[in-house]
Every structure is written in structure tokens, then in C-alpha cells.
Simulated assay, not measured.
Amino acid sequence: MTIDKVNLAHAFASFGDHWNPRVAGDINDFQVKLVKLDGKFDWHHHEREDELFLVVAGRMKMGLRTGDVIVEAGEFIIIPHGVEHCPEALDGECHVLLLEPNTVLNTGNVETDKTRATLERLG
């Protein structure tokens, strides 16, 4: 077994597209994913999976039907399953680390042009 460390700055620099999560690691039935946000995503929810969004660089607005939450670099927000949400990058590009079950489809209960059924792995 090989144990590797991940440098987040180098990992984010290795890809340039937006709304296309990359798998950076696995923890039991969970995955650590890195994604670059630009603009607004789609409103959606996940029936069974909770999600953690950790902002590494930039700022993100998490749209919620109960009111928006601004998440700054170094902060995270956990979205419980069943809660409709809509991530949005503020002030340009935003880098986010996701921690979520490996069963999560990035667009949850909807299918759009941003849906990624198969994710690329970093490395």
C-alpha cells in the first residue's frame, strides 16, 4: 500500500475547468473531491447523502431556500441530505474541497449539462 500526501495548491493547479469534480482520495465509503467553481451551479438536493464544502480559495455563496450563507476561504459548510442548495462562486473562481459519500452525483436529483456521472482521479 502506498500512502501519498496531497498538496492542494498543486492539485488545483493541475486542472482548469469548472464544475467538474476530481477525486483526490478515498476514505472508507467517502471521497475527497476537488472542484473549481465559477458562477452559479444548479438548484438540487441529495436524497441520502450529506455533503461537506470546504472553501480553500475564493468565496462561495451557498444558496439555501431558508437564506444564503457566505463561506469564506478556510471555512466549511455541511449540507444535510434532502436540503435543496445551490453553490455559487463569488468574485471569480472559487476552489472547494468536497467530502461526501462515493455514491453522490454532483447534481443530485437533477440532470443538467453540469452532471458528471464518472469522475476523473487526480494523480
Rank of each mutant, 00 (worst) to 15 (best):
T66Q: 11
V32F: 13
V71L: 10
S14N: 10
D50G: 05
L105N: 13
E88F: 01
N106M: 06
T115R: 02
L105S: 09
K61S: 05
T103W: 06
L98R: 00
S14G: 12
N7V: 10
P21E: 15
G16V: 02
W43P: 02
P80E: 14
D38R: 05
E51Y: 00
E111C: 10
T115D: 12
R48I: 08
S14H: 04
A89V: 08
H95V: 00
V23Y: 08
M60G: 09
K61V: 01
E93M: 07
T112N: 14
D68H: 03
V110W: 05
T118Q: 15
P101W: 02
V35Y: 01
L54P: 01
G92N: 06
T66P: 03
F30G: 08
L97Q: 14
M60S: 09
H45K: 12
D4E: 14
P21S: 13
V83E: 15
H45A: 08
M62F: 04
G108Q: 06
W43I: 00
G92Q: 06
D26E: 09
W19S: 11
G58M: 04
G123A: 05
L97I: 12
T112M: 12
V23W: 08
E93A: 11
P80A: 11
L105F: 04
P80F: 04
F30P: 03
G25S: 09
A11C: 11
R121P: 00
L90W: 03
V104T: 15
F76W: 09
P21N: 11
E93H: 04
E100Y: 00
F41K: 00
A117E: 12
